[in-house]
Amino acid sequence: MQEFLQQIVSGIASGGIFASLALALVLIYNAMGLVNFAQGEMAMLATFIAFTLVDHGVSYWIAFPVTLVVAFAGGILVQRIVIRPVERAPILTLVIVTLGLATLVNGVAGFIFGYVPRSFPSPFSAQTVNLLGAFVSYRDLGVIGVSTVVLLLIYLLLQRTTIGLTMRAAAHHPEASRLLGVHVSWMLALGWGLASAVGAVSGIMVAPILLLEPNMMQTIIIYAFAAAVLGGIESPLGAVVGGLIVGVTVNLAGAYIPFVGGDLQLAVALAIIITVLVIKPNGLFGRPSVRRV
């Protein structure tokens, strides 16, 4: 029972990481109906920036927000340079562009930082604390705490501020928003920046666990896909809930199903994706889609 509880807590911790990246995916999906295949790679690059800062002696708690700001600016830059020219192109084109972006960012990171895995510092110690009968590491608690704060901030930004309202309006009714004086294109850029920053959080959180290298996010993005799909790809709340469910499920499956073990956890994510898409394509919190002629 105790071990079971521990597995659940560490599942929630990885769920928080998946949820952040899934939320980034949802933000961009809401802005332009696109799944950004480069989200994980962008987060990885941001994590390398944080690593470089910390490596040069900058304190972790300064490097963290600085990285988020850089990631935010980078996201806006990417939208302006790469995405904007194909904004109105068919979805096929857009997906291929984001894939190209993923390949490009991966290659650039490999070029600049090399493929040797590096250990990334964590501000939380690996010591455990007894919490309701389960031994939980401070590191897991820290990840849960940081993820919660970030998710809350995004929620407040989207639901309680004018800029959040404008962003949602631009995403849902671009024409009407434009008539009301909203700079729709810049709102999309803002969405990309925000997504990039949120994704960076997941990268920084996962790096101490996985070791930092250019292919670090390749598996995490699959879990994030699973989380976003499970939650209904347009719902921010769904991304969070989906992330937690995926995190716990994958962790429990890895621990208690001998066939899955450590190396087939990714296959569990694939199974979740396919099951949800076939049985309930709108996910837990999504709205049914209507097709018009």
Binding site: I96, T103, L104
Partner: peptide, 8 residues
């Protein structure tokens, strides 16, 4: 990787 990405 970089070339593929840029070309795409």
């Amino acid at each position: 990787a970089v070339t593929y990405g840029v070309v795409l």
